[in-house]
Design a protein around this nucleic acid. Structure first.
Lengths: 150, 150
DNA sequence: CGAACTGGTATTAAAATAGGACTAGACAGC
DNA sequence: GCTGTCTAGTCCTATTTTAATACCAGTTCG
């Protein structure tokens, strides 16, 4: 049956997953952060079927995560570039990266690493409170809004 | 065809998405952060088909994100609780929440909000460098490892 | 100009999803 | 301790999604 959607959810997590929570979208975004811009680059790097990539790129453009721009090398082809909205996914991608690094690799198993411009490994994502103290899962709660029909 | 997997990827983002990157897993984790523990609670709150929920919970337990524990109310039933590994997904869920809040709601449109224990709204996720300065997407790069066969 | 490359579309089989019917064991009321 | 309801599933089916391949028009290269 048709996949359930959450575009109207009251929870921002649900809406975010509705927009970019499929198997491929965040990988495409990750590749875009790595500098990939062309259809063929995404296709080769991900090993995704071309049809899938076409629909995913269309969705991401429609969602405003990517935009099509003229090729930077002057050719007649188009490229896909991250928008502001796409760049704002950076913490999400980093969060996934850090969770994966911490829990999905055997010790010593090699994996790609995120570095700052000086070549230093970056620190862990931090959620600050208004007072500046970092917050963990036990320090927060969600205030819900009145239930709404989906 | 069988969904492509990334369990062996060199990129932690890909492995993380392989583990929890489907439509439902992170929503189940979100609900677990909200205190839900029982099969029926997840099923009613998400509106997910029972068969789907069964397979998702099994996968999450197998991945070590959730664990089955005896019911906290003394009944003979079981409950699903977040493990350490599950709790470590907190930044990912918060990142999705903040992105959704920023980009997927019309102004004035109500949505649930994350608060600290004092009832104050939390700040934005921050990625610190070793020197303490917050990093954005333009301040980082990925060091890749030698390509490996998937 | 001809060959290869780019960025797709069309087709098809297999797998995932949603939804509902059904069920075994737990529990609550009487 | 019998009956009805609740819980946590299983099983089945229709439909959608995915992956993989073949194909194709416009672009660029030699």
């Amino acid at each position: 049956m048709k996949r359930t959607g959450f575009a109207k959810a009251d929870c921002p997590v649900a809406r975010a997953l509705d927009a970019i929570g499929d198997w491929w979208s965040l990988l495409i975004v990750r590749d875009a952060f790595d500098g990939l811009r062309r259809f063929g680059d995404f296709q080769k790097n991900l090993g995704i079927a071309k049809g899938m990539l076409t629909t995913r790129l269309r969705t991401l453009v429609a969602t405003g995560v990517l935009e099509q721009v003229a090729a930077s090398d002057g050719s007649a082809y188009q490229e896909y570039a991250l928008t502001k909205r796409g760049h704002d996914l950076f913490p999400v991608v980093v969060g996934l990266r850090q969770w994966g690094e911490a829990h999905l690799y055997a010790r010593g198993e090699p994996h790609s690493v995120l570095l700052d411009q000086a070549g230093q490994a970056v620190g862990q994502l931090v959620l600050p409170s208004k007072s500046g103290k970092p917050l963990g899962w036990a320090d927060t709660k969600v205030r819900k809004v009145a239930a709404r029909k989906r």
